[in-house]
Design a protein around this nucleic acid. Sequence first.
DNA 1: TATGAATGAGAGTTCATTCAT
DNA 2: AATGAATGAACTCTCATTCAT
Lengths: 217, 217, 217, 217
Amino acid sequence: MKESKKDRIIDAAVRLFHTQGFDGTSVRDIASKANVNVALVSYHFGGKKGLYEELMTQFLEGHLQIMKNELEKTITTNKELVLSLIKSLLEYQSKNHFVARMVHREMTMDSVLVRELMSTYLRKEKHDLEEIIRTGMKRGEFRKQPLDFVVIHLRTMINMPFQSPHYLSELYQITTTEPYFIERYMKHIRHWVDLWLCKNQSEYTTTTTYLLPRSIS
Amino acid sequence: MKESKKDRIIDAAVRLFHTQGFDGTSVRDIASKANVNVALVSYHFGGKKGLYEELMTQFLEGHLQIMKNELEKTITTNKELVLSLIKSLLEYQSKNHFVARMVHREMTMDSVLVRELMSTYLRKEKHDLEEIIRTGMKRGEFRKQPLDFVVIHLRTMINMPFQSPHYLSELYQITTTEPYFIERYMKHIRHWVDLWLCKNQSEYTTTTTYLLPRSIS
Amino acid sequence: MKESKKDRIIDAAVRLFHTQGFDGTSVRDIASKANVNVALVSYHFGGKKGLYEELMTQFLEGHLQIMKNELEKTITTNKELVLSLIKSLLEYQSKNHFVARMVHREMTMDSVLVRELMSTYLRKEKHDLEEIIRTGMKRGEFRKQPLDFVVIHLRTMINMPFQSPHYLSELYQITTTEPYFIERYMKHIRHWVDLWLCKNQSEYTTTTTYLLPRSIS
Amino acid sequence: MKESKKDRIIDAAVRLFHTQGFDGTSVRDIASKANVNVALVSYHFGGKKGLYEELMTQFLEGHLQIMKNELEKTITTNKELVLSLIKSLLEYQSKNHFVARMVHREMTMDSVLVRELMSTYLRKEKHDLEEIIRTGMKRGEFRKQPLDFVVIHLRTMINMPFQSPHYLSELYQITTTEPYFIERYMKHIRHWVDLWLCKNQSEYTTTTTYLLPRSIS
DNA sequence: TATGAATGAGAGTTCATTCAT
DNA sequence: AATGAATGAACTCTCATTCAT
């Protein structure tokens, strides 16, 4: 069975929004890339804005769902919980990296939509992250630190690869979509969690200054 | 002496680009906010795009200049150098936070302009950052770690407040422009440098979980 | 059935281009004369230039078609062929005199478009005209003369009424569109062909110095 | 002494108007080609239109002056008069071929300016031409023919090279400005005058079918 | 005489959306 | 569900001209 026209629109839109932004993408661009009639966008999604918002909310709902699933796991330590959560969120964003990038960029705008999404989705995310950290501190697993910057730092670590993928690929030839990227990045994350969140001393087991040989040249 | 019309255009443009993005801002918006004739934008800057690029390159050149100045300082340790550099870059971005945000957002786009700016400015920045870290490692000041992710992490720490200012203000009521923000953030940075870059153990002196009382509520 | 909006645009454009030239005619002029929305010009013709070129090529293709039809006729003498060809081309231009004038004027410009049309259409026309004249000379029907200027002269005779219609109407009250104009002009042409192309001596049968009495005043 | 700025403007304008037409040429084009300030056009000529009209009237006044001079010559025959007149007008147009072309094209427009120039200059020209022909007919030098088309034909012969120079150069490699063009064209004209205007039989002395060997290929 | 800044008008084109089919 | 035609609004940019200097 062929992909439905509605899906074709979504695929085209995701790619174009991700590359050129919302205002930089025209409905005709989308329609012609999806090889469908222009009017179909309005028909199926109630307009360009509706399509855009649908993409955003779908992504953010999936994001929250991931967090919910992780939090419901029975886990031994909060450190394990954090690491598992980070990994899952990285994988989710990697799988939907076009939309991820689109969402991260949109979140830097000052619009009604953004404020709504902030309240609806990111407030919940923030709450969950705080809860994990706070509990870890109480249990003595995590170092006592000001909660706000810790959460922000944590969130930054999770999103960074998808917020600046162009920087990574252009200057370091790191593509966030290649199979082993998450594995590599998790190594860095694990180290960071050990040193920064927890009280433990930890060292990289490898002695190379670059993880990837080719980047050395 | 009154502000020239050219400057008025720049001021208006910075604010509008920062809020709505390039494509979301019309030349008429800028002209009417600056209270000048629409045609003046084309006259002085050769069009909307020319104005935009001028803002970007001016900012990035200032950015590189800051780095150059810092690197020429005679400093005792590389740790001091890194901290001083971070502080200066934070102050620079804070002073030009509208443009900073604009630049960071643009850098997530896939455009010819971005690739040019990457090669021209960010490559230089990357080179300098790598040099500092590498030297610090050689001297035994910094922990041996893969260079690529360390630099990226460092850069992320420097830019984060201006890359996601909306998140900070909306969810944590942290405004990056308030007088004491840099001081607060530098506390976090210093701690991070101690633990993460250097081998030292270091603890926050305060025991509060939030730096800012009002954020607790 | 009413005239389609596309056709209304064409009609309006032909009249306006003919009167004011390409650059002197605005898309809004055309649209308002055709009583359609401005955007329709871009929609149907891909812009003002596209509309213009379509008009030109349509006319020139018709022109070539006329010549092709004439050349395929079985004719007794080359003189008959020339006369029949001239008459058909005059009638074609008379029927499309607005476009004809537009094309003749455009052909005096130095543009890429003109050079393309020259190579594509006029080169073919030139070849056919040369062929007719050359064959007539070989057969002894036509006087031996330098081919280049003869062809140019012939072509000038065919186009003159539509290249300077304003001069004719303003100074001689001759309108190229009135029913009997071609008949009158062909009388002149026939005489010219006899004397100039062929070796025959020929006299006007009429003794009046003006063909049209009213022009005498 | 260097060329004055006013003259530089005229030179630039002539070239640009000739190439792109009035509406296709902007004041900024002219100013930048002449390497002067834009405002100078308005200052010296009272605007673009004023400059244009000055060029036109200057040319047409020179044209009339040529005719006046020729008519005042004491000449033996009207045939000699016609030939001398044609030659002088060809030389005048050749010397000012940019303006000539500009004027011929403008004369195909429907504008107030054109109607004014028609009444002012071309009416006089028409009158003179008619006078010459009519007198020649009375004297029995010229064949009796309808006066209107004869004058129109004569005028067409005089202007043709400058009305369709692009056709000549593009398809026949004939440049109207090359030194011997007028000589060559006058040969054609003389033949035409003999056969067409006068009653004489006349043959080309040369037997080549092309005047210019290179055009044969 | 000459200029750079500035302007209002209008240029061509693209926009997202609507509607009859 | 899908489409081509059509629209009004808005877009960026260029236009010829003016004006203070």
